[in-house]
Design a protein around this nucleic acid. Structure first.
Lengths: 215, 215
DNA sequence: CTCCATCAGTACCGTACGGTACGGTTCGCG
DNA sequence: CGCGAACCGTACCGTACGGTACTGATGGAG
């Protein structure tokens, strides 16, 4: 997640120069540390050792900078596709548990929480481009991985469902419940992370009990 | 939820005068309409036909006013206790479905969404009193109703679980999934509300399939 | 009627932020 | 070397907000 060192990296993928990516990195760090209120153009310029003029030249506007931050962060997250060849019951369970743990880890991450808070705060005013973007690039991405996993399970005769979206919704709800919102509201995530592993297994057990064959 | 007409109402319960309650009502309306950015002290004073000086005299501070708004709104929501005498399977299911529909309706409400956005936006900076307060007065309240319902179901031999908190978490997750977050991010709630009824029943079916006696 | 408390309305102040303009510096290129 | 582009640092401007001070009106108590 912090690998700025890779040449090109996430910057090239979005048509950004390396320097601009580094600036966005600093902006994300500012956002994580101090919240939206601390995310001033002057602060970003100071933290990134660049000038405000450059910020406006590169991103046009404060909103453009915010959008670029979300876009940049999303471009760093790549969901590994599961090679679902020859899946047995135990393998499916392991994959589901891994997915659950990854999901909880991602949602509990500093940057994810900060960006979600930012987008939610901006969601009230008309436009709400950020919320839509976060939704599209974040959830849709991880949803694809889950969808592929569920479809593979069904093809292997291990899962039974007629609506993949509904099954995914149940899986998501069983895993996350209201933990995401609680973390967004400021509950200390350190205490929560301890129970994540057990929570992931419990959720997958329940999900398999609902949608597993002869379950 | 909108019954401001009751004499005294939520104001008296919180040690507020009727006038102060009306001011908070206008503040909530401003927040719902325009988001946190529109919630300025001058705007509240203008909307409520009062002076800024009175605002500061009554609530001390802008944060105090925000806290008062959450406290005031929470004091208006009363969870009806279920008289759980003689519960059969069909009755339990009906109660659960009613709870699910109420939960979805509350979470999708304008005021709830606006207050959650406000608290989440404020959660980053140290203190995060609002998030904690919303958590305590909101979730804990509705969680009690669910807890009583679940306990009654177990006592009637209709539900089997060893950890009420875990069962409630599963119920909540199955009902809400990621819909709350999506609405907080600005997704149009109008389109969602149509499916709430069916969603509530599906969720309760799944929950009963997990925790109902004999499968 | 007089006194006093409360409150609306407004003017005011300090601050902080978004956005712009300008001087000085580095660096690549002909 | 000369030139221009990119850019850093900073100063600057307009605006908007939080919070305070003042004035005048209202209304109840003695």
């Amino acid at each position: 997640m912090q690998n700025v060192l890779e040449s090109g990296g996430a910057s090239a993928a979005s048509g950004l120069t390396e320097r601009q990516g580094a600036v966005l990195e600093q902006a994300l760090r500012l956002l994580v540390d101090g919240g939206e209120k601390a995310l001033t153009t002057a602060g970003i310029a100071r933290a990134a050792n660049c000038s405000k003029e450059s910020l406006y030249k590169w991103f046009g506007d404060r909103d453009g900078l915010l959008s670029a931050m979300i876009s940049y962060q999303a471009s760093k997250v790549r969901t590994l596709d599961v090679s679902a060849g020859a899946l047995d019951a135990e393998g499916l369970r392991r994959h589901l548990v891994a997915f659950a743990k990854d999901l909880l880890a991602v949602l509990a991450g500093d940057v994810s929480l900060a960006l979600n808070r930012l987008a939610i705060g901006q969601a009230s005013r008309e436009g709400s481009k950020l919320g839509h973007m976060l939704q599209e690039r974040g959830r849709r991405q991880i949803g694809r991985r889950a969808g592929a996993l569920l479809e593979a399970g069904r093809k292997a005769g291990l899962l039974v469902f007629h609506d993949a979206e509904e099954a995914y919704g149940a899986l998501y709800g069983l895993i996350v419940s209201d933990w995401h919102l609680r973390m967004l509201l400021g509950e200390e995530p350190g205490e929560m992370k301890k129970g994540f592993s057990r929570r992931a297994e419990r959720a997958v057990d329940a999900f398999l009990s609902l949608y597993g064959k002869k379950g």
